[in-house]
Structures are given as C-alpha cells and as structure tokens.
Write a protein that binds this DNA or RNA. Structure first.
Lengths: 205, 205
DNA sequence: CGTTGAGTTCAACGGCTGATGACTTTCGGA
DNA sequence: TCCGAAAGTCATCAGCCGTTGAACTCAACG
C-alpha cells in the first residue's frame, strides 16, 4: 500500500466510474465553479491528470456527470397520461421521487451550477424548454398561447421547492415527508396547469 | 485621462461609493465566490488594494454591499396590516417591487451567493427566520404549529419566482409585467398563508 | 515652512486552479 | 514472445485569486 508504484494499476477498470461518482457528489455539493478537479480526483483516489485522461476537460466531466440519469421522455408520459385532472399531484410526486433518489444529485448539481455559471444556466433553460415544457404541450390539451406562462409558473414552484429542500435546506421543507409536500403543492401545480391565471381562485358561491 | 499620476488624487472622496456600486453589480451577477476583488476594483477604476483599505476583506465588502437596503421591518407591516385576506396579493406585489428596484440587486447577490457558499446560505436562512417568518407570525393570527411549514411554502414559491425571473431568466416570467405575476401567484401565496394544506382545493360541488 | 495622515499605487507573497506532455507500467492480442 | 495501446503518475505551466506591506502624493493644519 505505502509502496507507490507508477504506471498502470493491475486490476481495476472501474476507475472511470469512481471518478464519475466523486464528481457527482462534488458538483452537487459545491456547484460547477467551486468544485475542483483536484478535489474530485482525491476523493476518487486518483491522480488529477487521470480525470483529463478520461474526460478531456472539466466541462465535459460535468456534462457526463449530469446528462445521464434523468430522462423526461420516460417519466413525463406516465405523469400526464391519466389526464389533466391528476397531473398536478402526479407531477409533484414524481418530481420529489426523482430528486430524492441518488440520481437527484445530478439535478442538484445542475441547479447549483446554473446560479453562478452562465453556460450552465443556458443548459438548464434549454433542457426545460425542449425536454420538459414541450412534452407537456404534447400531452395536455392546452391553449398554446398560454403554455409558456403556465410552464414557467410550474417551473418556478418546482425550482423553489428544490431550492428550499436541497440547497438552502430550510426546515421543515428540507426534511418533510414527500406526502406532506405533495398535499401542499399539488393544488398549486394543478392550477398553474389547468386553472385560471388572471383572477382569484374560483368563487365559492 | 491617459496621463496617470500616482499618489493621492485631488478632489474625489466618493471612491468608497464607487467601489460599493461596482461590488453590488459584480456580486449580483456572479455571486460571492465568482466575483473577484480585482474585477470589482477594475470596474470601479481603482487599485485592488484600495478595496482592502476601505473594507478590510472580501467578506466585509460583501456584507456592506448586501446588508443595507432591504428592511422587512418597514415593508412587512404594511403588507400584513390590511388583514389576512389580501396578504397574498400584497406580499407578491411588494416582493416584486423590491426585487425589480435597484435595491433588488443586493437580493439577487444574496440569492446567487447562498447557493455555492455555506456561510452565505446560513445568512439567508437566519434572515428569513428572524426577520421575515417571525414577523409574519406576529402580525397574522395563525396556528403556531403550522407556521413554519406555511412560511417555508411561501418562501419556496417566492424564491422559485426569483430564480426564474432573475437568475435562470426563463421567459415569459423573466419579462412579464408585475401584474401578470401577481395575478398568477397571489392565490398560491394566499392558500399557503391561510388555506388548507392537507387536501385538494375546496371541492366545486 | 514642516509635519501629519488619509488616499492611492505598486510589487509581491503563497495558494489554488485547469490543463499539458513526457514518462512508466501493465494488459491483451497477434 | 513481442508490441501497441491503455492506464496511471509526475512535474510543471500559466493564470487568477485574496491579501499584505511598503512607498508615494498631496491636502490640511500649525
């Protein structure tokens, strides 16, 4: 162990995966700019140059870290299939289950990085527009003129939830049970999707 | 202009204000970590060492930049005074008017920095808890057991709005008229403040 | 006049960053 | 068995960072 040997190590071909895992943690905890290749390499038990050997640059490493795990093309149809009336609740539930899962680390990394890094913000923007909002348009039968606003409103509430729960970590949202949040947020999302946007909620009498 | 002279300049004692203005812009655009003292000094037309001369350290400069302009103790009473039924609409309207004003730059700086910097996040958390949520508790007559959750929900929607409008800048929220957003968000905030949290919105039939 | 002190500049420190290129070792296949 | 490529290491580059301390200039005061 203490005898360092230079050159190729005998067995392990899973180094690349180790680097990716360490990168996911680092980017999620510190964001793109603050996370350093050197720290990632140390966490993975690896020489910093090896990171470049596998991924070429920090930017490509970030893309590899973040691009893999979440595919709205798989998730959204199930969310929207049951019709517009349950879409709000299903959307919140799915959102939380994704972000609470290990793959959610990538999402946190993306969100953290988008805040202090312009090209990452652009990446998030395009992801939202082309992968999420467009799909909602396809599946729900909404007025196309209203769709951008509705989509952005849904996004604002969900991003706000993510900020509270995973970034700022303000209690009790940070540790609340998913069901609590679903119950609280679902009506909001539902109204942004299908309800009226220009007046107070439907009059009681 | 081109003739540089060393030593004390004759007239201008407003250098400190120039540094503060440049710092506000830089921190708002890039966040605490990414903004550099050197860049701030350059933007202010000043030597970097002068920044330390006036402010001591980057952290103190940030505090000076951010601590001044927004005082919830002034704003919140007017928002909440008219009673709980209009609080949602007034809160959104006041929130937007503050963030759209020049002073909003400080808020954007704080939000941007809170994401990649732990002590800034703690600063935001304590600000929210002691300056905002506590005041809401004083003015509205809510169940104290529910207040933390209600406050965090309100905060999640408002922070999400701020992220969409000022950080990620996703249209149409980024450029929407304040009234459009007030109309869309006020019912949400109102429900988080005074409505039911554990069920769907009031049944129509 | 001389002194003082604030305003300002300059050069430098140590440290961290992403990236490069040369080098060595091992493995897999011919 | 030999060879080429993959895996891994090391030293180093250039650049930016926050911060420091010494030096200089100039207005004000006595």
């Amino acid at each position: 162990m203490t005898a360092r040997r230079t050159g190729r190590r005998p067995g392990r071909p899973d180094t690349r995966a180790a680097i990716l895992a360490a990168a996911r943690v680092a980017f999620a905890e510190r964001g793109f700019d603050a996370a350093s290749i050197r720290a990632i390499a140390t966490a993975a038990g690896v020489d910093p140059a090896l990171v470049h050997h596998y991924f070429g640059s920090k930017e490509e490493l970030f893309r590899a870290t973040v691009a893999i795990p979440i595919d709205p093309a798989e998730l959204l149809p199930a969310v929207l299939a049951a019709g517009p009336d349950e879409a709000g609740e299903r959307l919140v539930r799915t959102f939380l289950s994704v972000w609470d899962s290990p793959a959610g680390g990538a999402a946190v990394a993306l969100l953290r990085s988008a805040v202090s890094n312009e090209w990452t913000a652009r990446l998030v923007r395009e992801f939202l527009i082309t992968q999420v909002l467009r799909r909602i348009l396809e599946h729900l039968d909404l007025d196309p003129a209203e769709l951008p606003l509705r989509g952005a409103l849904v996004g604002s509430q969900l991003i706000g939830l993510a900020m509270m729960r995973y970034v700022i970590r303000l209690e009790p949202v940070a540790s609340a049970a998913p069901e609590t949040l679903v119950a609280a947020l679902a009506p909001t999302i539902q109204r942004y999707l299908t309800g009226p946007l220009t007046a107070a909620p439907p009059p009681k009498g």
